[in-house]
Amino acid sequence: MLKNKFSIKFYSENAINESIKAYSSLGKIKLEKQKEYFIVYFDKIDFNVSNIIVDEFSNYVLAQMVKDKE
C-alpha cells in the first residue's frame, strides 16, 4: 500500500477530498487525519499509474489549493 502525508499547514482537507474524488477511478484512496498531517493511503491502484500516482496526486492537491484560494 502506498501512502503520502500532507501537512495541515499547507493543505486543506477539502482540497484532499476533492482530489480523492478525482482519482477514485484509479484505485481505493483513503484519508486519515492525524495531529499535523493528513495521511492519504493508496490501495489497489491501477498498475499503469502506480509509479506516478502519489506524485501526481500531490500536484493535484496543490492545484486544488490554488483553485480554492482564487
Binding site: 501537512s7 506524485d55 496543490l62 489549493m65
Partner: peptide, 23 residues
C-alpha cells in the same frame, strides 16, 4: 505563502511539487 502557491502552480506541469515545514 500565496507567492509560493502561485510559483508552484506555474511549475506543476514540469515538476512534482510538495510543500512542508512551517509557514
Amino acid at each position: 505563502l500565496s507567492a509560493i502557491y502561485g510559483a508552484a502552480y506555474i511549475f506543476i506541469d514540469k515538476a512534482y511539487i510538495f510543500l512542508d515545514g512551517d509557514p
